[in-house]
């Protein structure tokens, strides 16, 4: 708790600074795309949100596996804290994708493999959060939610690799380790800054969420102890 308390303000500061730089670069400095014009600027929020929607799910799945196998006391709380942020990123990816799709594809929504997999991923995030809230006993809730999270990993993988598996309407990845495959530097650099901003936002709210969940666990234990004392 002490270490996370020290890191937290810096994570917030980093996220704010990266968002400020990234938004200025994306909205004012980056040139319009030669084919998509200014509509391509939606990429700077859509791509990081979509990438992080899968990335956060990977963190959540790793924490769930750790909770199931090694029963580490904080891993299930880490997975639980990832869920609202991941769901928000998935929702942003779907909304901005839909808004971008209208002028480019002529439709707000198509049942394309990537889009459908992303929608199913959102349902897994929502189902995961609902499961935690639906089960009274927190140990049982943690176990059931961890199993559901592992099952949902298939959807996250499908969302990531659907553009490689099938011939979809959705374009291939905008970011790649191979320089020849990713977008031009004029878009690539502000995109990297926005990716950093989304990552910093995730880190900050993951830390805040885990701290909150540790306190919530202590509250439940203390309430139980006080109730037992009152009953004795």
């Amino acid at each position: 708790m002490r270490v996370s308390g020290l890191i937290l303000p810096w994570a917030f500061l980093l996220a704010t600074a990266l968002f400020a730089v990234g938004l200025y670069w994306a909205l004012w400095v980056a040139p319009p795309d030669f084919r998509q014009g200014d509509g391509a600027r939606i990429m700077f929020v859509h791509v990081p949100a979509a990438a992080l929607s899968i990335g956060v799910y990977a963190v959540m799945a790793a924490a769930s596996v750790t909770a199931l196998i090694w029963r580490h006391p904080v891993s299930d709380l880490t997975a639980k804290s990832c869920a609202p942020v991941g769901a928000a990123f998935t929702l942003i990816a779907l909304i901005t994708g839909s808004i971008w799709g209208k002028p480019m594809w002529g439709a707000w929504w198509v049942w394309d493999a990537r889009l459908t997999a992303e929608l199913i991923l959102l349902f897994f995030y929502l189902g995961y959060m609902a499961l935690w809230n639906a089960v009274e006993d927190q140990t049982t809730a943690a176990r059931a939610a961890a199993i559901l999270c592992c099952v949902g990993s298939v959807s996250a993988l499908l969302s990531k690799y659907s553009v490689n598996f099938w011939n979809t309407l959705h374009q291939p990845a905008s970011l790649s380790v191979d320089k020849a495959e990713h977008v031009h530097d004029a878009f690539y650099l502000p995109l990297l800054v926005m990716m950093g901003a989304f990552y910093a936002y995730f880190m900050a709210f993951l830390l805040l969420g885990v701290r909150k969940e540790i306190r919530a666990r202590r509250i439940r234990n203390l309430r139980g102890a006080l109730a037992r004392e009152a009953g004795a």
Binding site: L23, L27, W28, P32, G37, D38, G39, R41, I42, V45, H46, A49, I92, I95, T96, I99, W100, K102, P103
Partner: peptide
């Protein structure tokens, strides 16, 4: 900045985000 015909799409995407 002025984005002509794409302005409603760009601003609504950033606004909702």
């Amino acid at each position: 900045p002025v984005y002509d015909k794409y302005a409603p799409y760009v601003w609504s995407a950033y606004g909702l985000t």
